[in-house]
Simulated assay, not measured.
Amino acid sequence: MLVRSLRVSPAILVFLALCAFLGWQFRQGHSLAAHQLSDLSLTKDDSSSSKRPRIAVVTFITDEKSYVHTSLKNKDHYARRHGYDFIVDYEAHTDRGTTYWKFNMMERLIKTGKWDWIWWMDFDTLITNTDIKVADIIEETLKNATDPKNIDFLTTHDCNGLNTGSFIVRGHERSIKFLHDIYAISDREKTADHGLSEQDAMARLIKSDPISGDRTIQVPQWKLNAFPQEIACFDESNEVWKPGMFVIHFAGAWAHVKGEDPTGQLMKKYKDEIVWGDWKEFYV
């Protein structure tokens, strides 16, 4: 067989070499890109484990008050500043008494699964230092707990015991059972004339049921539910509200302050003490 020798021009050899080089570069780039995407995926997963908790600030108002704008503006401003959700109900539908509606709200919000923690605030409260994050109070409190994952309720006391004007609930199905147990106590104690307040029913559950008690931790009153000097009903810390503290609560103002609108008078006095922060940083 006759074999003819093939002669390839230098230009073709250079072209083939260039193609081989570009192919190698493409494979290397593809491998590097895949590696970088993998790294980014890992970084994203790592950061998600340390993301900030999802928090809702919750209240209700069912009638006209002189301080409606002050209270709503204050809580809405705070929630916007820290990226929390602010939820308000304007109707209360419960046969146990209007104050029990706070528990109905809690149950409804927990069932959505949208929030890790729900902070209930009575309407006669003001956040007087919006620099403070309630998430930090939760974190600090849980660090001091023996079993942090077991804690579902952060509460405060005043001179009379439990005060439900400002408390925090974990967004977990265990909390729903806790609320149902409160309803059960209320229903058992109900008479033709009156029933237990939501505060007394919750206090009885915590005291009578060891499991519920273990899931509750008491926060110092001044940290989450401070009273002003006009309402001298403090917990064992005996701390009166001072400028720079987180929250002020005008609980039972009618029994301590003279005038036609005791709570409105205190709201007007203490709103000038609020540390607001620059609204332009989060409101625009």
Rank of each mutant, 00 (worst) to 15 (best):
M245R: 04
A226Q: 04
F234T: 10
G252P: 02
G213E: 03
K223W: 04
K207N: 05
K242P: 09
S237P: 01
A226V: 07
A251H: 14
E239P: 00
H249L: 03
N238S: 15
P210K: 08
S208G: 02
D209P: 01
W241K: 01
K223I: 06
I206H: 01
P243I: 09
Q221N: 06
W254H: 11
F250S: 01
F227Y: 15
W222S: 13
C233Q: 05
W241A: 01
P228M: 02
F234D: 12
S208Q: 12
E230M: 04
I211D: 03
S208F: 02
H249W: 08
N238G: 14
K207R: 15
N225Q: 04
A226M: 03
N225F: 03
V240I: 15
E239G: 01
F246G: 09
L224C: 09
P243C: 00
S212C: 13
H249C: 08
I217L: 10
I206V: 13
I211E: 07
E230W: 10
C233L: 03
W222D: 10
K242Y: 05
I211N: 08
A251L: 12
I217S: 12
D209E: 12
D209S: 12
G213R: 08
V247G: 00
F227T: 14
P243E: 00
I217T: 08
A226R: 09
F227S: 15
I248H: 07
G244E: 04
K242A: 10
F227C: 13
D214W: 08
P210T: 03
R215K: 05
H256K: 13
V247H: 01
K223H: 06
F234C: 08
F227I: 09
H256M: 08
N225V: 09
D214I: 10
N225G: 11
P228F: 11
F250H: 01
F246M: 02
E230Q: 13
S237M: 08
F234L: 15
T216M: 04
V247W: 08
T216K: 11
A251I: 06
S212V: 00
I231D: 11
F227D: 11
E236A: 12
F227R: 14
P210R: 11
E230H: 07
L205C: 10
R215W: 07
E230P: 02
Q229R: 13
F227H: 15
I248C: 10
T216Y: 05
S237A: 07
E239Q: 15
C233A: 10
D214R: 15
A226W: 07
W254A: 03
E236Q: 14
V247K: 02
A232N: 12
I206D: 06
G252Q: 07
Q218D: 00
I248G: 00
M245T: 06
I217W: 05
I231L: 08
I206Y: 02
G252A: 03
W222P: 04
Q218M: 05
